[in-house]
């Protein structure tokens, strides 16, 4: 009997704290799988943020450093500069990376910091109970936009990967999602390429992954997947927004 699927050794046996139907679990599993596929686990240092990915030190089987809110890429910069031979990735949510830590995000990209950032965008502050984020869509009702996001008051959602694709030091920028098996496969390929870019020393690599938050969106997990497609995707540029010429890099 052949094994067609197994638990990745990139994750520990710890069960996660994620709410039912949340796609964060899928995303951290993809990251862990790529770390194992690329044989990076033993030389990886991950940096986690404050927010819904803030407890991932319990899940990833590699070394993890916990950063203050918004500062994951600054901390990852310190780690990478101290240990340039190690593989360093950061995790951030939309509040962390696109609001409080926006200066750090863009500055790390501008420096061409040789780290890989995974930006999990669910258009809401999940951990604090569902407030409006910089990537909330126009009209989205949240605890702090109870009448819906108002363009006059809050402006349009920020398309962070598009912004970063304009920065020279960002070598690879992709914007993917996880609402269907096809999209999950594409997201894993993007993570793989981002990690290859770091290994090749080409510069900063950034993968934005659209993710659901059924709890704070106030919908069922299945509805959340269709909301991701119908409400989130139209707000953002999708696909590989910037890719370097990668000699010999083919992806999984």
């Amino acid at each position: 009997m052949s094994v067609v699927f197994e638990r990745t050794r990139g994750l520990t046996d710890q069960s996660t704290h994620f709410c039912p139907g949340c796609t964060h679990g899928v995303i951290i599993r993809l990251i862990a799988e790529v770390l194992v596929d690329m044989d990076l686990l033993e030389r990886t240092i991950g940096v986690e943020p404050v927010g819904c990915t803030g407890f991932c030190e319990n899940y990833f089987a590699c070394d993890i450093v916990g950063a203050a809110h918004g500062r994951a890429v600054a901390v990852a910069t310190g780690v990478k500069r101290a240990r340039p031979d190690r593989f360093v990735f950061s995790l951030q949510g939309d509040g962390d990376g696109a609001a409080i830590g926006l200066a750090e995000t863009i500055s790390a990209a501008a420096r061409g910091e040789k780290i890989s950032s995974i930006f999990i965008n669910n258009s809401i502050y999940g951990m604090t109970g569902g407030q409006m984020s910089p990537t909330s869509w126009v009209g989205q009702k949240t605890a702090t936009s109870p009448y819906g996001r108002d363009v006059e008051l809050n402006g349009q959602p920020l398309d962070l990967p598009l912004l970063l694709s304009q920065v020279d030091g960002a070598a690879y920028v992709a914007s993917v999602s996880v609402e269907s098996p096809q999209e999950v496969i594409a997201a894993k390929q993007a993570i793989h390429k981002a990690f290859e870019v770091q290994i090749a020393g080409l510069g900063y690599s950034f993968v934005s992954i659209l993710s659901t938050c059924p709890t704070n969106w106030g919908v069922t997990p299945v509805e959340a997947l269709s909301w991701l497609e119908s409400k989130m995707k139209p707000q953002f540029h999708l696909g590989e927004l910037k890719k370097p010429a990668l000699e010999g890099v083919t992806g999984p």
Partner: peptide, 26 residues
């Protein structure tokens, strides 16, 4: 060694945090 000019004091202290976490004198 490495000298890096940070984008702010906020970033600088967090870079220091990262380098110290990786075990180097910073």
């Amino acid at each position: 060694g490495t000298f890096l000019q940070a984008e702010s004091e906020v970033a600088a202290i967090n870079m220091v945090y990262g380098a110290a976490a990786a075990g180097e004198r910073v």
